[in-house]
Design a protein around this nucleic acid. Structure first.
Lengths: 97, 97
DNA sequence: CCGTATCCCACGAGATACTG
DNA sequence: CAGTATCTCGTGGGATACGG
């Protein structure tokens, strides 16, 4: 067995907030504060999750040289490709809640 | 937000061994020992996972009055309905490993 | 605004040993 | 055979406070 990449992906998907962040960013890039509001995650948790998703190649951090500072996060193509998977969970939950 | 059932399902899917157990049982019912062999999980971990999957309504434990004792685990229809989801992760991993 | 630093608690999971 | 009992360690995540 040892389907390593699959299990790594599932592990991250199962962590607190990953699903919410993905769902939010599928509608387009967002700033840290916006993500915080829509996902209702503590800054610490959101920060950790974004770092993990970055390390996973799911998210890209883009910093703008402005005042006040502005940072946006957007999904990589690999993360966008997770959408069918999200739809599958949602469809499942709809049926078997 | 608060898509509770979705996140609960994802959380369990992300735990150690859940994917392996699901994949194994999709081929038909199996005994504890067989599951242990094919998933290569410690008895403790496998036991915990099966209990959680049971509580989740994904798995049914069937005990036979035999000597030596025989116990089989099989998936519920709700768990079988997760297969498209598993295929989606596998397809994703295939593309974006 | 965008995070990081701490402190703390709970629990997930490995290893090993033991029982109905 | 099919698990449970312990012990231990590491980490996930909540709350609050602070820094660039």
């Amino acid at each position: 067995m040892t389907s390593e990449p699959i299990e790594t992906a599932l592990a991250l998907l199962g962590r607190q907030g990953t699903y919410r962040v993905l769902r939010a960013l599928l509608d387009g890039p967002m700033r840290f504060g916006e993500l915080q509001g829509v996902t209702r995650l503590l800054p610490r948790t959101l920060s950790l999750r974004l770092k993990e998703m970055d390390a996973m190649g799911w998210v890209v951090r883009e910093q703008f040289a402005e005042v006040p500072p502005r940072v946006e996060y957007r999904l990589t193509p690999a993360a966008v490709a997770l959408e069918p998977l999200l739809r599958a969970v949602e469809a499942w939950a709809e049926e078997h809640a």
